[in-house]
Design a protein around this nucleic acid. Structure first.
Lengths: 201, 201
DNA sequence: CAAAGAAGTGAAACGTGATTCACTTCTTTT
DNA sequence: AAAAGAAGTGAATCACGTTTCACTTCTTTG
């Protein structure tokens, strides 16, 4: 008589869970973490609020996972760009473009992921991911330094600083309202900035 | 019989108001905006919660003024550094050091001022101040470009990016816990980074 | 000093959103 | 098909901080 869900049932449950995360991410996309409430997520995913608690122990837990999902996705894309063949300057340029381009569509998301503060728990997670970001850029910088095409520098700091620079221009003067600036102009400027900042060319 | 407060009484009131702001700023310093509540500020200033509403129409209003107070202070210091005599590279270096040094003691404050999101109203204010920051650095960059010591570039973007870079390393890998890094090492690295990023030597 | 009005008080009302839990529905097992 | 347990529900409760307001205290004026 003892009931154990079959693989199939478990899969369905997992799907609900995943759906909650996806809908949550969508919400962040649209209005940042501040628009994520248990009921807003539940409504989007078309389940009751109580159901959310069958999958996540607390709102913090839910937000943390949403954050991870979103960040992992972006980091992955940048890693991909950096894993290609090519010289340091080119790869750096490509990675910058990928990061910027993706962040611009989905600016709200980028902002939420990089800066928006929610609660202590999520802030901790974000701190961890700052390192992930830095580590994403570190290898290419290190390679550049080793090859002698980049000047000697603390690559960890340079990497973090580069990410910060990109993040800032995304949420700063270039807010959706302020359009005295073409998107491409911005990206080009940042490509130059990033290259110069680490001493490429 | 109609009572009108004398200058003296008004001064005392103004003092209460100022005290609320100062105590609020202290709280931000210690625990970010999230630790600012009407009652925490009131308690610190040793007045009742209701009193706060005699001076500020709402929590948002209070936070906005605290934010302005804190930011104005920092911007002022950097402006001062940039107003000295000297060549572009030197002034830039000095300004970077001032910014970084001040932000490091008072990291929580720096973070709160630059990134911590609180409510829509304050976010608006922060957006305004991002421009202020950018404008603070713009003139020196423009001068550098004019003098030909810096390469042609979009100085507004460069300025914003520089600020972002500094902000990031302040809240990132260099969190209070992570001390594998000397403060001076960090500052030096950022001075180099900033100079390179705008193409100074 | 008495009246008028400003400044200050703080307990209570409110608002918002997280969390709980008794209950229903769906799946599996015998 | 009945029992056992998992998944899902959503109204009710709770937590926590903001805001209000009737009231007290302080200051000024005639």
């Amino acid at each position: 008589m003892a009931y154990k869900p079959t693989a199939n049932t478990e899969a369905r449950k997992a799907q609900t869970r995943q759906n909650l995360l996806n809908q949550g991410l969508t919400l962040v996309n649209e209005g940042g973490f501040k628009s994520v409430t248990i009921s807003s997520v539940a409504k989007r995913a078309d389940v009751a609020t109580g159901t959310v608690y069958r999958h996540f122990t607390s709102k913090s837990h839910l937000c943390t996972e949403i954050f991870q999902l979103g960040t992992e996705r972006e980091v992955g894309k940048v890693r991909e760009a950096l894993a290609q063949q090519g010289d340091v300057a080119t790869l750096l340029e490509n990675a910058t473009r990928v990061f910027m381009q993706r962040a611009i569509k989905g600016r709200q998301l980028a902002y939420a992921m990089i800066a928006e503060s929610v609660d202590t728990e999520l802030d901790e997670e974000r701190k961890r991911y700052r390192e992930v970001w830095a580590h994403t850029y570190e290898p290419i910088l290190q390679r550049g330094v080793n090859e002698g095409v980049l000047p000697k520098q603390n690559v960890a700091i340079s990497a973090a600083a580069m990410v910060g620079a990109m993040a800032e221009v995304l949420v700063g003067p270039l807010s959706p309202s302020t359009h005295h600036l073409e998107v491409n102009e911005l990206i080009d400027a940042m490509v130059d900035f990033c290259k110069r900042s680490v001493g490429a060319q």
